[in-house]
Amino acid sequence: MAMLRGGSLLLLLTMLLIAALLMALSLGSVVISPLALLRLLGEHSPSLDATLVTQLRLPRALNAIAVGGLLGLSGAVMQVLLRNPLADPYVLGVSGGASLAALSAMLMGIGGSLLLPLSAFGGALLSMVLVFALATTARGFPTTRLLLTGVVMASGWGALIVLLLALAPSQQLPGMLFWLMGDLSYAGAPWLGLTVLAMSLLLLSPWGRTLNVLARGPLQAAALGVAVRPVSWGLYVLASLMTAVAVASAGTIGFVGLITPHLLRLMVGNDQRLLLPASAVAGAILLLLADTLGRSLLAPQQLPAGVVTVLLGVPVFIVLLRRSVH
């Protein structure tokens, strides 16, 4: 019975994702109806609309799916791994390192379409290795130390970021702020993100039951047969890599990684075998909707997706949270 419920939930989420994708392709400064989208597919000589859809909207939508999926999935992993409901993909300072590197690249004028994500990715990796090295101990998995080290590092990066903003020439500020708020217009080709997302889902799929047991606590998991230390470090590295790829393509998009697993947990319980793939799909939907709204609400003015995700997420989450209290 639980399996049927799980299967139908994933099916429902996938259908919602397709609907959101259609919306993303048709809405914007020029509205193209879904029917017109179909007609564009059959065209021999590409029209302006076709170029708009295939060259601009589709890559951007795919990027939203990749980034949202990566954030949702790594948030779900982090919450189990750190056994903390407040954990999200950024809790270990990965986004801070990425942002600092990206802003420095912008200031040095090397913010090209390829170099910017590359430097952000480098910053994320650097931060991850630093937190790892500072928190690691001889035995066990240092959950609390990791969390504290991450939070302190994130504060450190935050201060350096503010310092950079204060020193930056004023004409550079809007671009930097957009990066910090999370924005998909800088994103390059979506294939890297989509590949990493697919690989991560594939890698994690046999580990759902292990994560369920790990959620009971490190000692308890060990007594039930989990090799806690290698599994935890593996999950930590994978979740950090997913976050690094996401941050590198779209900046710091808040809330998706925190809220998506919680939303789903309130609806379907805490079985990680269902929660992990569902978090990936739901994260993708959330970011895709947020980005579409951000592009079309005040078009041609664009709102950063990171801001819209939070504005969308807060009321939905509060309503669900209040309804779940019986």
Binding site: R216, R265, G269, D271
Partner: peptide
Amino acid sequence: PSSVMEMT
């Protein structure tokens, strides 16, 4: 006790 609260 180590059971996860949200589980059945």
